[in-house]
Simulated assay, not measured.
Amino acid sequence: MSDDPTRVQEFFGARTADWDARFPDDGPAYAAAVADLGLRPGDAVLDAGCGTGRALPALRAAVGAGGTVLGADLTPEMIAEAVRAGRDDAAALLLADVARLPLRDGGLDAVFGAGLISHLARPADGLRELARVVRPGGRLALFHPIGRAALAARHGRRITEDDLRAEPNLRPLLAGSGWRMTTYVDRDDRFLALAVREDDRQG
């Protein structure tokens, strides 16, 4: 599914109507991951692949009224559902491919991405684009409310060695895309990888 943006749109478009209802208890996990991102009042943050915007209220609370919160998603139905849920009060919503963001270089302090990596057509290119829009020293959180094994079991699969989210795969993928991983957690009740934007001018 991740090889074609149109297929990603079709996949999520067909699932939008009951998306939040399918996962009603994820709110605290999202809030905890946002807290771990270490945002400060006044920061500018992007929710990349924001879906129905479940992270947006927590991101807004973290950066305060003086901060900037953007939510970008490829799927029109997801953006529309975020608006219906009132989450556009917390953020400016963009219908955009996170691999080609209409944002200036280095303008953000952080990026939050829930369930993002497995839906990027070209993960390295997508992560490089996220690095482009974040200032040196800025932060990235790759999150899922359940871990890799639990997610695979939910879909009747087993995790495999080629899973991009496995630490031996994700760490070099991030490193080659402008990020340095600082934290990696993969438990049944949480997946969270935190990374810092490297300064291209160093070395």
Rank of each mutant, 00 (worst) to 15 (best):
S2P: 05
D4Y: 03
D4G: 04
R7C: 01
Q9R: 15
Q9D: 02
F12R: 03
W19L: 13
P24L: 12
D26V: 12
P28C: 13
A29T: 10
D36M: 05
P41G: 08
G42F: 12
A44S: 14
A44M: 03
V45A: 09
A48C: 05
G49I: 09
G49N: 01
C50A: 11
G51Q: 12
A55K: 04
A65K: 14
G66E: 13
T68C: 13
V69C: 10
G71S: 05
L74S: 02
P76G: 04
P76H: 02
A85T: 02
G86V: 06
A91R: 04
L93F: 07
L93P: 04
L93A: 03
D97G: 12
D97S: 07
L101G: 13
P102M: 09
P102V: 05
L103E: 08
D105T: 14
D109I: 10
V111Y: 08
G113S: 03
G113L: 05
A114V: 12
G115V: 06
S118Y: 12
A121R: 14
A121G: 08
R122D: 15
P123M: 04
G126K: 04
R128Q: 12
L130Q: 09
V134P: 11
A141N: 02
F143L: 01
H144F: 09
I146P: 00
G147A: 08
L151S: 07
A152M: 13
A153T: 11
R154G: 01
H155F: 15
G156L: 11
E161L: 10
D162H: 10
L164F: 00
A166F: 00
P172N: 04
A175T: 07
S177K: 06
R180W: 01
T182D: 15
D189E: 15
D189K: 05
D189V: 08
R197D: 05
E198Y: 00
D199I: 10
Q202L: 13
G203Y: 07
